[in-house]
């Protein structure tokens, strides 16, 4: 028998043995592992409840019942956070704003809709996704997800690449195309009345709603929610606390999220 043939037979024999033994060995080896990964899959489908996760329920009908309320929410937020108003769509910066149903839920294609839906003001803001694409995209960790579920921004670190804006599937982010502290042609400042407790932003960074993290820290509720307190049009709270108001609302009302199919798991819920 020449050496080549012997080598071939050796290899063939070994391969056969390996072929027979491998699957069972693999199974024994991976048993623990397999169970663990099955657990991981289960965890992902139904995340373990640890710490806080802030969320908001928007009861859309209440805004029709209380005309002007939506705009009050917007202006409260924008005043407190020194959000500039440039008076044009191109430079526009907004943290929370009013849209119509067909723009907030473009994926929904009801053949006929209730008439009230047509002019219903629907508040739109950052969804503080549980799985935020903007955070994945940011090359400097200038935007990040905090332990309490809030997707935050560090304006000091933002390089203004606007990758997060391309990544955000909800159009919730705005860029400072020009100096927000500037003045328009008539000498009117873009920030009408500065809130001395909160900073402005600078040219060339991205900004968005921060779920009023600075107010939560001192025991206040978000500005927009505060405006809507009496009507309960907005309910804000820790969704991981079973006794919180928002948990109760989510359990008793049917809510929808914006574009849930893309796996971002938004923390904003709408009652239509």
């Amino acid at each position: 028998m020449d050496s080549k043939r012997r080598d071939f037979l050796k290899i063939a024999g070994l391969t056969a043995i390996a072929g027979i033994a491998a699957p069972s060995a693999f199974n024994t080896l991976l048993k623990g592992e397999a169970n663990a990964s099955a657990q991981a899959v289960a965890d992902k489908a139904c995340p373990a409840v640890t710490g806080k996760r802030y969320g908001m329920v928007i009861d859309v009908k209440k805004f029709t019942e209380n005309p002007g309320l939506a705009d009050q929410c917007v202006s409260a937020c924008h005043t407190i956070h020194n959000v500039p108003d440039f008076g044009n769509k191109k430079d526009e910066i907004k943290w929370i704003w009013v849209e119509s149903y067909s723009h907030v839920f473009p994926e929904n294609t009801q053949y006929k809709r209730p008439d009230v839906l047509k002019d219903m003001p629907i508040l739109t803001l950052c969804n503080h996704c549980d799985n935020p694409p903007c955070v994945r995209a940011c090359p400097t960790k200038a935007t990040y997800k905090k332990k309490d579920g809030i997707v935050g921004m560090d304006y000091h670190r933002c390089i203004g690449c606007r990758f997060c804006m391309a990544a955000c599937p909800y159009g919730a982010r705005s860029f400072n195309w020009r100096d927000p502290r500037g003045k328009d042609a008539n000498g009117q400042p873009f920030i009408k009345a500065e809130n001395s407790k909160y900073p402005t932003r600078m040219r060339g960074v991205v900004e968005k709603c921060n779920f009023c993290t600075e107010r939560l820290a001192i025991g206040q509720i978000p500005a927009c929610v505060e405006v809507a307190t009496q009507t309960k049009a907005l309910v804000f709270g820790d969704m991981n606390d079973p006794d919180s108001e928002i948990s109760q609302v989510l359990k008793t009302s049917f809510t929808i999220q914006r574009n849930p199919a893309i796996g971002t798991r938004p923390s904003l819920f709408y009652i239509i």
Partner: peptide, 14 residues
């Protein structure tokens, strides 16, 4: 294309 070109090195810093 950067809004804050002076901070471009943040990509390496973080």
């Amino acid at each position: 294309d950067l809004g804050q070109p002076m901070r471009a090195l943040n990509v390496m810093l973080y």
